[in-house]
């Protein structure tokens, strides 16, 4: 499969103190596709994802070596501002964490911190991105109630709208449906399939079926090491590595 690279990981290693969490990972992530990072829990999936927007920075005693190039720019270059990198990426975490403010303010938060003052434009943006995450019709009459009043599935879509509102190029999902009921999960997955036309999406998941439903490209990690990566169809139908085979068959998990 020929593709344009959006994120390019080169020899990335991450240590928590002396414990290695990621060992010398090199992989390219395709542009405007859904990439799934799969593997058993504790294998470094989340660490890899959080390296992309440098959220690993805020963990005590972390050491990073290697490069992550986004649009050709090494984000671990000390010259690069973390805020600048993060603006390019929206994050959906395992559980939705609405900010302690209203629904409207949650979506407007990103644009505001980046200096948007125009009220009318803010209102347009909020509406636009709430529609984008298919939440608008459910909340349009109560935009100024606290976000915490929403159901957990709605909260996750709100977090998606909030992430989209900073106008990122990349959406990162850290098991974004793990706290949701099946119906809400389905909605998020449907949004992802729609959004990949515009965005590069990287999703961490431990649900194989979800990876099969969503992914165009798959990265398989095991205990901090990159075992195999490639187009989804090939990985699922014809894995090269023994470990990948066993994982897909379900003998290791």
């Amino acid at each position: 499969m020929e593709f344009k690279t959006h994120i390019s990981v080169k020899n990335l290693s991450v240590f928590y103190g002396k414990e290695p969490a990621l060992k010398n990972i090199t992989v390219d992530i395709p542009d405007k596709k859904i990439t799934a990072i799969i593997g058993p829990s504790g294998c470094g999936k989340t660490t890899l994802l959080k390296s992309f927007n440098r959220l690993v920075d805020s963990i005590d005693g972390i050491k990073v070596s290697g490069e992550v190039l986004v649009d050709g720019e090494n984000i671990f270059d000390p010259e690069v501002e973390a805020t600048h990198i993060r603006k390019k990426m929206g994050l959906l975490s395992q559980r939705p964490y609405p900010l302690p403010m209203s629904i409207y303010d949650n979506v407007a938060y990103g644009p505001r911190i980046h200096g948007m003052k125009d009220k009318k434009k803010l209102g347009e943006m909020v509406e636009h991105y709430l529609k984008e995450s298919s939440l608008w019709s459910e909340v349009k009459d109560r935009l100024h109630t606290p976000a915490s009043k929403l159901s957990i599935g709605q909260q996750q879509r709100l977090c998606l709208a909030r992430g989209l509102a900073v106008e990122p190029e990349i959406i990162l999902g850290d098991e974004p449906t793990s706290a949701l009921d099946p119906k809400s999960s389905q909605r998020i997955e449907a949004r992802f399939l729609e959004l990949k036309k515009e965005y590069t999406i990287v999703v961490v998941t431990h649900i194989l079926r979800q990876a099969k439903r969503l992914a165009d490209y798959v990265i398989f990690l095991y205990l901090g090491e990159l075992i195999e990566h490639g187009p989804a169809e090939r990985i699922f139908e014809n894995p090269k590595e023994e470990m990948t085979k066993e994982y897909i068959k379900g003998t290791i998990s």
Binding site: M116, K121, E124
Partner: peptide, 14 residues
């Protein structure tokens, strides 16, 4: 997709 455009700012760094 509509890109509404966000201003870049330095004030917050200060």
């Amino acid at each position: 997709m509509v890109r509404l455009g966000l201003p870049h700012m330095n004030k917050r760094r200060i």
